[in-house]
Design a protein around this nucleic acid. Structure first.
Lengths: 140, 140
DNA sequence: TATTGTTATACTCTATAACTATA
DNA sequence: TATAGTTATAGAGTATAACAATA
């Protein structure tokens, strides 16, 4: 019979609501997609959509330091999902999906679609569109 | 003259938009509030609103493992912001703000208000209300 | 000189399992 | 027995600074 905690101003803050919503969505992602974290899964899909992208450009796109990207790319490469290939500018590594990376990317897209359906089930179609538009105004 | 990266399905996913928006909001928080991370600041405000809350209840409220909460409480205590006091049920630690914790909480509230203003500046008042309502439907 | 990737290092945030003290 | 807090340990995820290869 514990009284609920007083929340103070928190529930009226955009940042707080974002954090709580994201935690809920991430939990569903882990359950219904699994295998890769949302961030890593997103990178795999970005590489799929941009074959040969230099890893520095990918780091820039997802706002990671390029030294951080080294470990991320290492782990995807260790799992046999992508490979580095020396670029024309020989300082760069182009990133390419392997065959099994392509297979996983396809499976991820299907599972993410299902996950998205579960998350969006709490919203009407127009609410979902509205939410995405509003989030787009914040992000960047 | 680098072409922008193709984003594929990502921009249409609620989880992706949440993540990007949250990163942007967090960067602004770090700039305009500073001192404590959004999560730690939120905890300080929760303790302020619930003086004497047992640390396990706080952990439950913010969905952290109670072993994780130990370190969080340690760090806030080391910074002189809160103190543990043995509860009536002598297994529990009630959490209380110190004087300087109360001072910081007040300052945080003012700075967070300013931060919220900056974040919400991109939205109309009704868009902001709408966003919070939509996020509330997702979180939980 | 500037850029790309790498290494060494460290910090934050989180969890699981086993322990202590109290109920 | 069960619960609250703790410890030891580990794993993500991230950054900064210095370095080598290449432009």
């Amino acid at each position: 019979m514990k009284p609920r905690l007083r929340q103070g101003v928190l529930p009226q803050l955009i940042g707080y609501r974002l954090r709580v919503a994201q935690q809920a969505v991430f939990r569903d992602f882990a359950e219904s997609v699994g295998g890769l974290s949302p961030g890593r899964a997103g990178m795999l899909l970005l590489i799929e959509a941009n074959p040969g992208v230099p890893q520095g450009r990918l780091a820039e796109a997802v706002k990671l330091d390029r030294s951080t990207m080294v470990g991320v790319v290492d782990s995807l490469e260790d799992r046999g999902l992508i490979e580095r290939r020396r670029g024309t500018d020989r300082r760069t590594n182009g990133l390419w999906l392997t065959r099994s990376g392509r297979v996983l990317a396809g499976r991820l897209r299907r599972r993410i679609e299902r996950h998205e359906g579960r998350v969006a089930a709490r919203l009407s179609a127009s609410e979902r569109a509205q939410l995405i538009a509003l989030l787009e105004k914040l992000g960047q």
